[in-house]
Design a protein around this nucleic acid. Sequence first.
DNA 1: AATCGTTCCTGATAGC
DNA 2: TGCTATCAGGAACGAT
Length: 277
Amino acid sequence: MPELPEVQTIVNDLQALTGDTFTGFWTNFSKAVKSKNFEKDLIGQKIKSVRRVSKNIVFELANKNFLVLHLKMTGKLILSDKNIMSLVTGHLSLPKHLHHIFYLKKNGVIEFHDIRKFATLEIVDAKKLFEISKIKGIDPLSENFTLKKFREILENKKNKNIKSVLMDQSLISGIGNIYASEIPYDAKLSPLRKIGSLNKNEISSLHKSILKILKKAIELRGTSFSDYRDVKGSKGSFQDHLKVYKKAGKKCAKCGTIIAKSVVEQRSTFYCPTCQR
DNA sequence: AATCGTTCCTGATAGC
DNA sequence: TGCTATCAGGAACGAT
């Protein structure tokens, strides 16, 4: 599932489309399109910039609006220069999970695939984008995410455990289920620990591990555990560095203890009962 | 006001 | 073999 590192990788690659213009749009699943007049608002618009807002991919358009894409679980963007029009018009069979296509003036098309159809597309104005950014928590890669700021965020969350705080997008935005297991492992803290039980050093470790793991995952172009691919269809490689995620029953590489799994807020959580305290 | 459960959806896997 | 049942999982939404 695309989390902050995966979305950042995609956004970095989409920079290549800056200056290009949307010339058309096709969909066979319009339920995913959340704004009215989507096509009308899109066509003819030049891309001024591409950036990430939490796990959203945001295209700044020339008319001051923003195309906002959220990949949710299985959304995938693929840049392609093949003649997709012939696919849509029935000359060839469409890939099963290709649900939306953006046509560009210079760079071919952006194919938007989505197996589980949770992904969303919308065009919003600056005010709405500001609201979206505001309801999301702090971006852990922004320079504002200092240790001091992190302590402030945790101040009112004493009864929550580490896992749910990392996953709560209204506190810190961008961390999903994979990194919410890998970060506590790196910090040698149990994901089930209550925030209120953490001492100063432990909070500092957690803060360091958030930055370390996310940055490393971006360097490795994300985690291709199952569906995630970059815009060229290539895998990332952080999956080769996972220590606990989806490793229940296997031995911890560091100490040999069997990795445990427990469910926190309906989400699987993995940890080493020996290395993580 | 904060927290909890439900919902969207399909492929993979388990169980019989 | 082939069927059905269960699960994964981001985040909006409704319910408490």
